[in-house]
Nucleic acid binder design. Sequence first.
DNA 1: TGTAATATGTCTGGAAAAGGACATATTGTA
DNA 2: TACAATATGTCCTTTTCCAGACATATTACA
Lengths: 115, 115
Amino acid sequence: MTEHFRTQIVQRISRNFLDILILRLIQAEPMWGYKIIKETKRLFGIKLRHGALYPLLNSLEAEGYAKSEKTTKGGRVRKVYTITPKGTLLIDAYYEVLNEQLQKLDLKKEAQEIS
Amino acid sequence: MTEHFRTQIVQRISRNFLDILILRLIQAEPMWGYKIIKETKRLFGIKLRHGALYPLLNSLEAEGYAKSEKTTKGGRVRKVYTITPKGTLLIDAYYEVLNEQLQKLDLKKEAQEIS
DNA sequence: TGTAATATGTCTGGAAAAGGACATATTGTA
DNA sequence: TACAATATGTCCTTTTCCAGACATATTACA
């Protein structure tokens, strides 16, 4: 039953945190857009539309979270993206916040009861 | 610097996973809408708009993740929400997936290199 | 008696996002 | 010589989302 929710959850996280997902991928290994599409398919079962990805990659670079370098592999031009220190900081921040969020809630702790 | 990202990250998580946040709150302690607003402010520093919350609470109940019971406290009508078993399963699934996601990526593992 | 707080609800206009089409170029293969 | 795959990009339309307004009722308090 929990299994039944899995796919939609993974898809929801990927959709809502696509930028973070991409940064994690290029952090693990520098990649270009087309490979990112293949890897998200392979690793998470997510089909990224390139019409969404390429503009996002450009904005990630514009905001300084990633940087790209054009390489040519047998006539094919690739824009290989690498994560920047700022991008690493962003990912670390997400890890930190999400880990906090995963701590079970204990409302009583600091509560001044409303009711 | 990492601190600089914190607020926007928490807000982003709260906006995108508001339903999960609410379910976690009523799981920790049954509550009504107005108190949920107060608690999210107190616990996460997030100002929930009631115009977003109440319809969401209704849909959570319609989908069977929560159930409500009307109580009266000195003339004031409250709809106290409790989590259902289905809601608990959903939260567990999120915990599971997020924990997986937080594992550092190791692309090499199952890779059949594209390049 | 008026204002703030408690309590729950709907609705609408604008902004953002999603999906898919349009566009182009090279390489590999049947 | 097509067609699939690799590779990157834009654009437009539809759909979804969000912020704030509109709406109502009770209670607490100055």
